[in-house]
Write a protein that binds this DNA or RNA. Structure first.
Lengths: 347, 347
DNA sequence: TTGTATGCGTTATCAC
DNA sequence: GTGATAACGCATACAA
């Protein structure tokens, strides 16, 4: 059995230096002569000393993280926020504070979003999480925050051309490929393999990636995408699009909806004879979708784990601030296939 | 913005009692007059005071958790252990120790397992995690540990008829149902729907549940299970079973293998003409399976998240010991569908 | 039963 | 640069 863990005192007396020196050696921002730091770090390794994060946190100042959510009107974004808040709650005892600002696309403007970020800057928050913004104007703002020593994390969009420290995303290539493979599974014994895709908003880089990945998959799994319809993340547009699709292509065999805006498609399928026979792969999981998954109109849907995306963003940003520790790998959620058989795990 | 968090001192001076009284009020095992405790707890609620877990942990004794793994010779169990150790590592700073004992079915005996548990008892460990044991003799041992104040958690098997505090499992009903639905998806346009199941070991309660769930699913999704073969978790037996299956039923249309012992089936499929055309749903994800998932012999496999099962078991036991906090819900992993499209997320 | 004093392992402050 | 020493927020042995 392991003996008592070495403390800062143990190493200090071992080396005949003060505990302050030990402490400083482990903080890169702390001033300490180079030789001394190296000596301490080296013998700590041999000696088996590691600073206790808990005790360390206790004596440190509180960190504050600002969160800006510029949400589309989707349950999706509120799940991300739930995840962020859950992580905050789990870390509350570790001297971390969180200032959440929720804005809505449509209701609120870009200017209001910028105002929030300026407020974060003025308050000199330690970290900032930005959710759901991909437009060009955000880049400068991120860089400005970053230049003032604020660590910025983005959720849902990568923005790798900005100075954000990391981002928490879905793996859109995998999602598109999964959708394609699911369609091909559902089309297995079927000779008619005409497939139609409904996308959320072609302007969004996310949907562009999904379209590309799905098209690659269609080639790989050998079925035809006869058309891609843009629903502009708008139910009315989606309703018209699905009607148009079936009038242009009455013999559709499979459908992939890459956005949560898939209810209009479900409703249309209810009105036609062979609605349940069509292969239909949807996106996301939310209450309005449950009945359609259960009764077989939707064969499978791909869940992006928005809760986890939010949780991970906050949690990793905390560790970056406290432990100066960058996430080892890019933060990509692992998309999940949800069918009626396992829907119970997601409601 | 939130002001400084209330501390034990704030509440103590507010109530004109000592900080010790406050501290005791929040520990059910601590002696304190009933009225005082109730007063403190009530005003703490109003006042907005909550004990800081971190500071609390710092001043408490170290807990020790003993882990006994009585493993089948499967990569599966080592993944569970990886999860346990990862949780231990994440909690190392919180004054928790872990004593892991790995035994192997075949190599080690039941008596050796009992010896380990006796050692845990003698050492008066605070908690014990038991992995991979379902036989009757374990019940008494669990109860004995429990009667001595040791919190026992089981992994992979529930053992609800023992005094274990909780268990971390896969959701076998969901897995069986998912396997059935996947088969039905793959059999969609196909008229021949003859399906065969290969199970790990009919004696194990796990495989019994999987068989039942899969059969229920077959009825629901309308395909026929023509036979269930027991592979006894043994590759040789599995090799014979698959040959037997195809000689008895040359027109098999779909296969479900409920155990990780599915490589012999893959190898058999390689030797026959229509191997890739057959629907094949497997279990678990491990390196030997990768090529068969990629090249299409395996259409989908169901991943049980063994890593997470182990992680959660340790993590929740820690919180039970430290916070006297029972898990809100039963600890069931959420099984995942893995196909070639998303295999990259699991390797 | 209740309060006081000490310790938990670290960082921050302030001298030197 | 470096080293004492006071926090940080709480639990508990001990004294009352």
């Amino acid at each position: 059995m392991p003996q008592r863990r070495k403390t800062i005192y143990d190493l200090a007396s071992e080396l005949n230096v003060s505990i302050a020196a030990i402490s400083r050696a482990f903080n890169p921002n702390s001033k300490l002569s180079k030789e001394k730091r190296e000596l301490i770090l080296a013998t700590a390794e041999k000696y088996g000393y590691k600073p206790n994060k808990m005790a360390s946190r206790l004596s440190m100042d509180t960190f504050t993280i600002g969160v800006l959510n510029f949400s589309y009107i989707k349950p999706f974004y509120s799940e991300i926020i739930d995840g962020v808040m859950a992580a905050y709650n789990d870390l509350k005892d570790y001297k971390i504070d969180c200032d959440l600002h929720n804005l809505q696309r449509g209701e609120n403007t870009k200017e209001e979003a910028i105002e929030v970020l300026n407020y974060f800057l003025e308050k000199k928050y330690n970290g900032v999480i930005i959710i759901g913004i991909y437009e060009g104007w955000i880049i400068d703002k991120i860089n400005q925050l970053s230049d003032n020593g604020i660590k910025v994390v983005t959720v849902q969009y990568d923005l790798s051309n900005s100075k954000r420290v990391f981002s928490s995303l879905s793996n859109y290539n995998v999602i598109g490929d999964m959708a394609a493979q699911l369609c091909s599974m559902l089309l297995r014994g079927v000779t008619n393999r005409k497939t139609v895709m409904f996308t959320g908003n072609k302007v969004s880089p996310i949907h562009q990636m999904l379209i590309e990945a799905f098209c690659r998959g269609a080639k790989k799994y050998n079925f035809d995408i006869v058309e891609i319809y843009d629903t502009q993340d708008n139910p009315k547009v989606a309703t018209e699009a699905v009607a148009k699709a079936f009038s242009e292509h009455p013999d559709i065999a499979a459908i992939y909806a890459s956005s949560a805006n898939s209810l209009p498609i479900c409703r249309y399928l209810e009105t036609i004879e062979n609605g349940k026979q069509l292969a239909f792969v949807a996106s996301d999981v939310f209450p309005d979708l449950y009945p359609y998954i259960e009764n077989g109109y939707i064969d499978a849907t791909i869940y992006q784990e928005p809760y986890k995306m939010g949780y991970v963003a906050f949690d990793k940003l905390y560790h970056l601030l406290v432990d100066c520790e960058m996430p080892a790998r890019p933060l990509m959620s692992t998309p999940r296939v949800v069918m009626s058989a396992n829907l119970s795990d997601y409601r």
